[in-house]
Computed example of a mutant assay.
Amino acid sequence: MSGQGDGPLRLDAQRNRDKILRTARALLREPGELRLNAVARASGVGQGTLYRHFPTREALLAAVYERDVDDLVAAAPELLASLPPLEALSAWFERVTAYARLKRDVFAALEVGTWRDLADHSLGPIGDAIELVLAAGRADRSIRPDVEARDVIILISWLSRLDDHELDTRGPVLLAVLVDGLRPQLS
């Protein structure tokens, strides 16, 4: 999808690719359609460089989305290494809010078939990240034993339907309610 072939990228090519992805992610927040020439200009790379990495707008948007999924998934074990499971899940939910915002923007910019493929691709790794934290919480009894990763995915799916204001105001409160609901019930 990235036009990079089978081998690893040279260091300068990887830097350019990363810069393009960061810039495209930031420009997605601006009104209007994401244009490749605007991404190239704001990234400080030539259009040829951009097209070598991302031959189409869809390829660029898919790569931005996939990078966010990868970052979100990688955050779960990192947070779990430094925080108790329930706190790790709560901190991870904060990152889910940023992911939901990007998901909404990317999916709005893509055709239906493309975004369905992306959504299907992300559910497995995100579910695995959630299950990692849930399993640790079940093991130390800080998280209910009856909750599965799919339950959490269903409960957090509403985030991508909120506008920015609601994500900022209601999102943290609703995620805190979810975390509280994951605590074991006292008898």
Rank of each mutant, 00 (worst) to 15 (best):
R150A: 15
Y65G: 06
A40C: 00
R29L: 07
R52C: 03
A76D: 04
G124T: 12
D70Q: 14
P172G: 01
P31R: 13
A129Q: 00
W158A: 12
A109E: 12
P31V: 11
L86F: 00
A91W: 07
S82Y: 05
N37V: 15
P55Y: 12
P125V: 01
A98N: 06
L50F: 10
A136E: 03
S82M: 15
F54I: 10
L132K: 01
P125R: 02
P125W: 03
L83Y: 00
V173Y: 02
H121M: 10
P145N: 14
T169C: 03
R138C: 11
L118N: 01
P172V: 13
P55W: 01
A88H: 00
V152S: 07
V106D: 06
A75F: 07
A129R: 00
D151N: 15
T56H: 00
Y99D: 09
T169H: 11
R104A: 06
Y51K: 03
G124R: 06
E166F: 05
D70G: 02
R141M: 15
A81V: 14
T97P: 03
L102T: 10
P84G: 14
R35A: 10
V133R: 04
T169R: 09
E87A: 10
L72W: 08
V152W: 11
V173Q: 12
T97V: 13
E33H: 11
L27A: 00
V69C: 01
A81Y: 07
R104V: 12
A119F: 11
D128L: 10
D168K: 12
A81N: 11
A98G: 12
I154D: 14
D140C: 14
V147R: 11
W158V: 09
L89V: 12
A135L: 15
A88L: 00
S90I: 11
